[in-house]
C-alpha cells in the first residue's frame, strides 16, 4: 500500500456541527420517560397516546427535551395550552406553532406532517381519516401525540404504539424553589404489551 503524504482525519464542517437537527429515527424525550420506553425515546412515525387527568402536564414535560433539541412541534386545536408553562418547562418557543380550532382538523394535521417532527392534538380531533393520518405519519417519519384527558376512547381503537397513562396526579409540597409546590405525577407506559411505571416525577 502506498501513502502519498500524511493521512489525517477529515473534520466535519463547522456548519454541520452547529446544526441542532439530526436525521434521526428517535426523538429525545425527558429522561424519566425515556427510561421506560423500549427504544429510549419517541420513535419517528410512532403514535403516542397520553391519557388521564394531568395528560397535558405530562405531555409538556415529556416533549420539553424534544423541543430543546431543535425539533419542530405543532399543536392542533389546543388553543388553551399555557405558553408560560411551555417556557417554564424549557421549551424552545421559536420552533412551536399552534393551528387553532376549526373545521377540517385532520387535513391540517396531514399538512403539518409534511414538515413538523411532532404533531400534538386532542383525541376529539380524530375522525374517520385517522388511519390515513397514521399512514402519513409513518411515511413522513413524524410522531403523533394524542391527548385523551377524559379517557374517552380505549387505546385499542387508536392502536397507539406507546401509551402513557397518568395514574396519579397530585401536588408536591412547596419548596424553596417552588414556593407554591409543583405538580407531581406517576405514569405507566405500555408499549408492545410491556408495562413499566415511572417513579413519582416532579414537573418543572
Amino acid at each position: 500500500m502506498y501513502y502519498y503524504g500524511v493521512m489525517s482525519q477529515l473534520s466535519a464542517s463547522p456548519l454541520l456541527r452547529m446544526t441542532p437537527y439530526q436525521p434521526s429515527t428517535l426523538f429525545p424525550i425527558k429522561a424519566e420517560f425515556a427510561a421506560l420506553m423500549l427504544r429510549g425515546g419517541l420513535v419517528a412515525g410512532a403514535i403516542a397516546l397520553v391519557s388521564g387527568t394531568g395528560s397535558y402536564t405530562v405531555m409538556i414535560e415529556m416533549l420539553s427535551v424534544t423541543s430543546r433539541a431543535g425539533f419542530a412541534i405543532a399543536f392542533v386545536g389546543l388553543h388553551d395550552l399555557g405558553v408560560v408553562a411551555l417556557t417554564q418547562s424549557g421549551w424552545d418557543l421559536t420552533q412551536v406553532v399552534l393551528v387553532d380550532d376549526g373545521p377540517e382538523m385532520s387535513q391540517a394535521i396531514a399538512v403539518l406532517l409534511a414538515a413538523f417532527d411532532v404533531v400534538v392534538f386532542d383525541i376529539t380531533v380524530i375522525d374517520r381519516h385517522w388511519h390515513r393520518l397514521v399512514a402519513r405519519a409513518r411515511e413522513r417519519k413524524s410522531a403523533l401525540v394524542v391527548i385523551d384527558q377524559d379517557c374517552r376512547r380505549s387505546p385499542r381503537q387508536l392502536a397507539p404504539d406507546v401509551t402513557l397513562i397518568v395514574e396519579e396526579f397530585g401536588w408536591a409540597q412547596p419548596t424553596a424553589e417552588c414556593p407554591f409546590g409543583a405538580p407531581a405525577f406517576h405514569v405507566a407506559v405500555q408499549e408492545h404489551g410491556f408495562r413499566t411505571d415511572t417513579p413519582t416525577v416532579l414537573a418543572r
Binding site: 397535558y56 402536564t57 409538556i60 388553551d80 395550552l81 399555557g82 405558553v83 408560560v84 408553562a85 417556557t87 417554564q88 424553589e177 417552588c178 414556593p179 407554591f180 409543583a182 418543572r204
Partner: peptide
C-alpha cells in the same frame, strides 16, 4: 412565580 398551569 412558578404557578404555571398547563391550560390557560
Amino acid at each position: 412565580p412558578g404557578a404555571t398551569p398547563s391550560l390557560v
